[in-house]
């Protein structure tokens, strides 16, 4: 079988970009799960809100891509914190499954409202002028924006890892995950920390949304199917380790890209099939602890 290097590289790049989104989203899910013990089903919906936020900033207020990259995650993060304060915090102490059901309901509301106003078709969002065009690397043509998405996500993922694993704030966070009562006794405001954590996780999803806006069109349901794939990523990687989520996210994106090249019919399903295989071989996930 002859391999078309150009096409293979193009699919690998698409895979890396999807992997970036998987990594950013599963990272956020893992951070939220650690603190709140909730699987955030609304994660796909806030990803979509990030993209729409960038769209509004550009078309209503004339604010471009670069400020949107900062503003959209903050706006959506604040929205997330309001959700946490008004709804999610009341679930503390209840079975985990109620968190899943509540956030599923929130996702239906958010997606439904956007669908009512924007239908199901996509809205275009232009690539910023600085990142247009591409580079010829000899073996492949690299559109600059796509390269930027991969690098930007990687930096944000590593920064989040650093924040949680290597700073004092992160140490408090990890301590509060293990034993919130004791951490409160040290005078640390754990409920506020939980709110901020939810805001951080949601903000990461919104950032992924902004990054994806110029590639995938801005659609109300853009996050609805994605979140299910991200769930499979989380099952494969386990939620015990931050670095685990990042690596699994990127790796599965690459596998998906390769599948698109070698056996396109299975590209939708390959992540789920891998999930089945991992569950058969190592049920606790590749990096996770047993739950």
């Amino acid at each position: 079988m002859s391999i078309n290097l150009q096409a293979l590289m193009a699919q690998l790049l698409v895979g890396l970009i999807n992997g970036s989104f998987y990594a950013l989203l599963s990272l956020g899910l893992a951070v939220i799960f650690g603190m709140l013990n909730i699987i955030n089903f609304a994660h796909g919906a806030v990803y979509m809100m990030g993209a729409f936020c960038a769209y509004f900033l550009l078309n209503v207020m004339g604010i471009g891509y670069w400020p949107a990259l900062i503003i959209a995650p903050i706006v959506v993060g604040i929205f997330g914190m309001i959700l946490e304060r008004t709804m999610l915090q009341w679930l503390a102490g209840l079975d985990h499954l109620y968190g899943l059901l509540l956030t599923f309901g929130m996702a239906l509301i958010i997606q439904g409202v956007f669908q009512n106003y924007f239908g199901s078709s996509g809205l275009p969002y232009a690539i910023p002028a600085e990142l247009q065009g591409g580079m010829n690397l000899g073996f492949m043509f690299l559109p600059i924006y796509r390269g930027w998405v991969v690098i930007c996500s990687l930096i944000v993922c590593l920064a989040t890892w650093f924040l949680i694993e290597r700073t004092r704030l992160g140490a408090n966070l990890r301590a509060a995950t293990e034993n919130p009562t004791l951490v409160r006794a040290f005078g640390i405001n754990v409920p506020r920390m939980i709110t901020l954590t939810y805001g951080l996780g949601v903000g990461l999803a919104a950032l992924a949304g902004v990054l994806s806006a110029p590639i995938n069109q801005v659609r109300p349901l853009m996050g609805a199917d994605l979140i299910i794939v991200v769930f499979a990523v989380v099952v494969i990687g386990g939620m015990g380790s931050i670095m685990g989520s990042i690596i699994t996210g990127f790796a599965l994106g690459i596998v998906e890209g390769l599948t698109k090249y070698f056996y396109p019919e299975a590209s939708n399903t390959v992540v789920f099939v891998l999930m089945v295989l991992v569950l058969l071989v190592k049920p606790s996930g590749l990096t996770g602890r047993t739950t």
Binding site: H96, V229, A232, V235, L279, L280, T291
Partner: peptide, 28 residues
């Protein structure tokens, strides 16, 4: 046989992913 290998929240995510897998199979 696959799904009961995990419990709680993971069980929910796995069953959701399996049904999505089947959805794509039926689509094709």
């Amino acid at each position: 046989l696959i799904a009961i290998r995990r419990q709680g929240i993971y069980f929910a995510m796995i069953t959701l992913a399996l049904s999505q897998l089947l959805y794509f199979v039926y689509l094709q």
